[in-house]
């Protein structure tokens, strides 16, 4: 079983805040597959730093507003 990443994210909440953006729409904006957006959201895949910045840019927020890493991890 693949160990889930300890990086958490608020992508689902940010999509909701941006007019119920779908995973497909976010994927189109990023140039990745919808399955990759879903995997990132579910914590099954840690995106590259470049994709992480692209996600933050799509939502117009900072990286820390999208991704969090628990203290002491």
């Amino acid at each position: 079983m693949v160990k889930p990443t300890r990086v958490t994210n608020r992508i689902r909440a940010l999509r909701d805040e941006h007019g119920d953006m779908t995973q497909g729409q976010l994927a189109d904006a990023l140039g990745v597959t919808r399955q990759t957006v879903n995997a990132i959201e579910q914590g099954k895949y840690s995106p590259s730093l470049e994709v992480a910045f692209q996600i933050a840019r799509v939502f117009g927020v900072g990286l820390d507003d999208v991704f969090q890493y628990p203290d002491g991890a």
């Binding site: 497909g24 990745v32 597959t33 990759t36 590259s48």
Partner: peptide, 10 residues
């Protein structure tokens, strides 16, 4: 095009 897309995770 969307169905043929591949990315960094792939």
């Amino acid at each position: 095009e969307r169905a043929r897309r591949t990315d960094v995770r792939d």
